[in-house]
Amino acid sequence: MSHSKDRPSYLAHHFSDPAQQSDSAKLGMWIFILTEILLFGGLFVAYSIFRAWNPDMFYNAHKFLDVKMGGINTVVLITSSVTMALSIRSMQLGRKKQTIGFLVATLLFAAVFLVIKYLEYSHKFHLGQLPGKFYTFTGVKGNNPHIFFSIYFVMTGLHGVHVIAGMTVIVMMLVRTMRNRFSSEYYTPLEMTGLYWHLVDLIWIYLFPLLYLIG
C-alpha cells in the first residue's frame, strides 16, 4: 500500500482520489434521500386514501389547524434552508467564521420551528384533538375525525423527528468546522448535511398545504 504524499489526509484508504470519494458520498446521500421520500410516501398514500374515503370529515377537521402558525413555520424552515446553503458557500470560499455563523443561524431557525410546533401541539392536546383512541374533541363534523388527527400527528411527528435528527447532525458539523476539519477543498460532510436539511424542508413544503390548506 503506497502512502504517497499527494494523498490528502481526508481521503479514505479505499478511494483512489478525492473526486471518487465525494462522488460516492453524493450518490449515497441521494439514495438515502430517496428512501426518506419513500418512507413519507407511505404516509402520503395513507393520507390520500382516507381523504378520498372521508372528504367532508377531512375538510371539517383541517379547519382546526392553525394556518398562521403553520405559515410562519414554513417561512422559518425555508429561511433555515437558505442559511444552510450559505454556510456551505462560505466554506467553499474558505470563510470558517461565516460558516459557523450560518450554521448557528440554521440551528436557531430549526429551534424556532420546534417551539412553534410545540405550541400547536399543546393547544391541540388541551382541546383533546389527540390521535386515535385518545381523541376526545367533539367539534368536528363527520365520521371518525380521530383518523385525521392520527394522520396529522404521525406525519408532523415523523417530520419533527427528522428536524431533531437534522439539528443533531448540524451540531456535529459545527463542532467539526470549529476543529478545522473542513477547508475550501474538502467540505463533503457539510454538503451532505445541506442536502438532508433541504429534504426536511421539502417534506414540510408538502405537508403544510396538504394538512393545513386543503385538509
Partner: peptide
C-alpha cells in the same frame, strides 16, 4: 424497505395509540 418501515410504524402506533387506521372498529 422504507414502505415496510412506515407500515410497521403505523402498526406499532395502532397498538399503542389506537390510531384507527387499520382498526375496523374505529373506521
Amino acid at each position: 424497505t422504507p414502505v415496510l418501515g412506515i407500515t410497521l410504524v403505523l402498526l406499532i402506533l395502532e397498538r399503542v395509540l389506537g390510531m384507527g387506521i387499520f382498526d375496523p372498529a374505529m373506521g
